[in-house]
């Protein structure tokens, strides 16, 4: 098994943390190898940002993605910019409120992760909601492993909020269908 995952959005949304949690869930709380990298330039803060994770049951040589299997986008600019290297049949997940122009002629998953986060009381957990949705849709990792990685990676006083965000995202993802 080898999966290349990209989570993208704009700087400040926590796309790096989202990728970090998936990578950690894979290699610390599961038995996979994983690497996580990110791309940004000094002038790109606030602009499009991306975080990429490779999960594999074998050794990972080249540590950057070559063909993305799963892409989750939380900003229009990121969705528009980072779609060039998707593998055929790649799973695409977007929040339609954040990526309104999303009709690209192939079925994609639409999950309102920001709305879920807002209903939980703070849109700062949009990224963790997206992690939940991504796991619910793709099932690339065991839910418990990812939940452990969330708990291990967020400040203690926001743990409950983050776990709720993950679980609600997970449920929304599990029920989502590509359209």
């Amino acid at each position: 098994m080898k999966k290349e995952v990209r989570i993208c959005g704009f700087g400040g949304q926590g796309v790096i943390l989202a990728g970090f949690i998936i990578g950690k869930a894979a290699c610390v709380f599961s038995d996979y190898n994983s690497v996580q990298s990110q791309s940004y330039g000094p002038e790109a803060r606030g602009g499009a940002a991306r975080s990429e994770v490779i999960i594999s049951d074998g050794k990972i040589g080249y540590p950057r993605p070559i063909g993305i299997d799963i892409m989750a986008a939380m900003a229009q600019e990121a969705f528009d910019s980072y779609r060039g290297d998707l593998r055929e049949g790649a799973i695409i997940i977007i929040d339609p409120d954040l990526v309104p122009r999303n009709d690209i002629g192939t079925p994609i998953y639409r999950v309102q992760v920001q709305k879920i986060a807002e209903e939980l009381g703070n849109k700062i957990v949009t990224n963790i909601t997206m992690v939940g949705a991504l796991i619910g849709i793709t099932k690339i990792l065991e839910v418990e492993a990812v939940k452990k990685a969330v708990i291990d990676s967020v400040p203690k006083k926001f743990m409950e909020l983050n776990v709720n965000a993950f679980e609600q995202g997970l449920e929304a993802g599990t029920n989502a269908r590509p359209e």
């Binding site: 610390v28 190898n33 540590p63």
Partner: peptide
């Protein structure tokens, strides 16, 4: 910079 910013186990 590649290895410096890469995350791994």
């Amino acid at each position: 910079g590649e290895i410096g910013h890469l995350r791994e186990k």
